[in-house]
């Protein structure tokens, strides 16, 4: 049924043929894209599974309670995980207050100007400095200039510098999400700037800050290069002095000066050995590190997701 005396569009068949041709590219690319992502996922899954399967037989209580040893079957990661824990303890208590404070300063206090700009430029550049450079800084400054030696304190401070930009950036992002009217409401009832910050801003930003802290700590657990550079030992068969004592004042800080090793260095050490049996130990250590970091990152990502979903100002 020919309608309306309009001429039939002769191009229509041409257009249809063209679309079919062009859509083929769509399908081809969608296929390639999916293939790339899927194969990356498979490759990484295979790698991680290999690590887990190789390391699995070693992962038992003894592995965690034994010192490293020349005999691979006897070797464990006691000194390494203790070292990691103590180093991270220092890192946490240095990086978190300073990082959060700096983030608050930049968002709430700093006036727009060259000083704030300078800090900002520095923070974003520090985030991109290779970790081994922090190691060199710590080697020159903390180990020798300040005479802190190759100690847990040095390592903790070094890793806290690495973690600092992460904490600062996440604090700022979290604070930026808080609308002005919340602050105004608090100011309106006579609160001081710090009261507004402490009672409101920090409280509401807590989730985001926490996310940054967890991601930063996860990164600190896995960092190897800077800790090697400051001269962490690779073979340690003793524990640092206990932070808790049996006599008053029940706490001592001698452990801060102690030599140490950490999990990734222990793993590095075992990878570098020629004997296959040590590679199994390395795999087991790697599995422990991976589990820890994936778990922490997973928690952080989930946390952030929940915050985004929950909070609607």
């Amino acid at each position: 049924m020919k309608k309306n005396n309009l001429p039939e569009n002769k191009n229509l068949d041409l257009i249809r043929a063209l679309i079919i041709k062009h859509k083929k590219n769509d399908h081809i690319f969608a296929g390639i894209g999916f293939f790339v992502i899927a194969s990356l996922a498979v490759a990484l899954l295979v790698l991680f599974l290999d690590l887990l399967i190789n390391g699995y037989p070693k992962i038992n209580l003894e592995f965690f309670s034994n010192f490293p040893s020349r005999k691979p079957e006897m070797a464990g990661i006691l000194s390494a995980w203790m070292g990691s824990a103590l180093v991270l303890f220092v890192t946490f208590f240095v990086a978190v207050p300073i990082g959060v404070a700096a983030g608050i300063y930049l968002e709430e206090y700093a006036k727009k100007g060259w000083f704030a700009d300078l800090i900002e430029i520095n923070v974003s550049n520090l985030a991109g400095v290779p970790s081994i450079i922090y190691g060199l800084l710590a080697l020159g400054l903390f180990v020798y200039e300040f005479g802190m030696g190759q100690s847990i304190l040095t390592a903790g401070l070094t890793l806290s510098l690495l973690m600092l930009p992460i904490v600062i950036v996440s604090t700022r992002e979290a604070i930026r999400g808080i609308p002005v009217h919340i602050r105004e409401a608090a100011f309106a009832v006579g609160a001081t700037k710090w009261q507004v910050t402490w009672h409101h801003v920090i409280q509401y930003a807590m989730g985001g800050v926490l996310t940054g802290i967890i991601i930063g700590m996860a990164r600190a657990i896995g960092e190897t290069a800077p800790v090697i550079t400051i001269g962490a030992l690779t073979f340690i068969a003793f524990l640092p002095p206990s932070p808790v004592t049996e006599v008053a004042p029940f706490i001592n800080f001698d452990w801060l000066d102690a030599g140490f090793t950490v999990l990734p260095i222990q793993m590095f050490n075992w990878i570098s050995r020629p004997e296959h049996a040590f590679h199994i130990n390395a795999a087991a250590t790697g599995a422990v590190i991976i589990m820890l970091t994936l778990l922490m990152n997973g928690v952080a990502i989930k946390l952030r997701y929940n915050i985004r979903k929950k909070i609607k100002w």
């Binding site: 309608k3 309009l6 229509l12 679309i19």
Partner: peptide, 13 residues
């Protein structure tokens, strides 16, 4: 028109 195509039809690209 003129080809009387329902442009919302799923079959029409």
């Amino acid at each position: 028109n003129p080809d009387d195509t329902n442009i919302l039809d799923k079959k029409v690209d």
